[in-house]
């Protein structure tokens, strides 16, 4: 079974972002970039399935400009077999990404897609579910565990007040939550090996993707700083804290 793992390059989670003063977006110039953390978990899970002999091939895919090549190399260093970058200068929206991925999944004949539940830049949490819908596949979202058994996969999902277990018919799209695994540390020899693995650059036309599949469904009119909380006070003791909460804030 071939597994496709879509990945996205995002501002590193430990970087404090700056909103541009003209309110057109978030400043990403000169900022440290990394693989979206949920995608890293997805790559790790797919590679574990490869190492267990359940998967035959793991293909990392992104839709982005050439700066994402290094992110694909990270996926190859974790252990993906090869990578595909669909060249695209402007970032696409989730529905368009799902449409492009659908054509790639079909062209590759993949039997499973594992991807992050959300990218930590736009926090949409849509693409996996949309891809599953367009393919007519089952979906296992926000998973913390999966077990493939023949033509089904059993998943444990994070739900709002606990965990839920579902059995999905394969093929399926799975989206990862934090506790699914701990991505491995990439060792230098694996980074060297990754440089020799195939990374193909393709265009939309190579996968028969028409222009109307990638038109925008919304426009971002402005991006602003959130209102900041005004600074509070430091209290000296538990007694003072309780007094403030009771008599000043009226919350206890």
């Amino acid at each position: 079974m071939k597994i496709i793992v879509p990945i996205k390059r995002v501002v590193d989670p430990y970087v404090s972002i700056r909103v541009k003063s003209d309110e057109t977006g978030v400043d990403t110039g000169g900022v440290k970039m990394s693989m979206n953390p949920f995608d890293e978990i997805a790559v790790e899970e797919a590679v574990q399935l490869l190492e267990a002999g359940t998967a035959t091939e793991v293909i990392a895919v992104t839709i982005a400009d050439s700066s994402s090549d290094e992110t694909l190399r990270s996926a190859l260093a974790i252990g993906a077999d090869r990578a595909i970058r669909i060249n695209c200068e402007t970032p696409l929206q989730p529905l368009s990404i799902a449409k492009v991925l659908k054509n790639i999944v079909e062209a590759e004949g993949a039997g499973l897609v594992i991807m992050g539940k959300q990218a930590i830049d736009n926090d949409n949490n849509q693409t996996g579910q949309m891809l599953s819908a367009l393919l007519g596949w089952s979906q296992g979202t926000f998973i913390s565990e999966q077990t493939i058994d023949g033509d089904t996969v059993k998943v444990t999902r994070e739900i709002d007040n606990g965990l839920e277990t579902l059995t999905l018919k394969l093929p399926a799209v799975l989206t990862t939550d934090l506790r699914l695994n701990e991505p491995r540390y990439i060792k230098l020899p694996n980074m060297m090996k990754a440089k020799k693995k195939p990374l193909d650059t393709k265009n939309f036309a190579d996968y028969g993707i028409a222009d109307d599949a990638i038109t925008a469904g919304f426009t971002v009119q402005k991006v602003q700083e959130p209102p900041t909380r005004k600074a509070g006070i430091i209290v000296d003791s538990v007694a003072e804290l309780i007094e403030k909460l009771r008599d000043e804030a009226n919350v206890i």
Binding site: Q93, P94, L95, A98, D123, N124, N125, Q126, T127, G128, Q129, M130, L131, S132, A133, L134, Q139, T141, F142, R157, E158, I159, D160, A216, G217, F218
Partner: peptide
């Protein structure tokens, strides 16, 4: 935008061929 809605809404949006606005 609970795990219920997050799981379901994008599947609906995709098959209506419209964008979803999340959260």
């Amino acid at each position: 935008a609970t795990n219920f809605g997050k799981n379901l809404a994008p599947r609906v949006a995709a098959l209506l061929d419209v964008a979803q606005i999340s959260d």
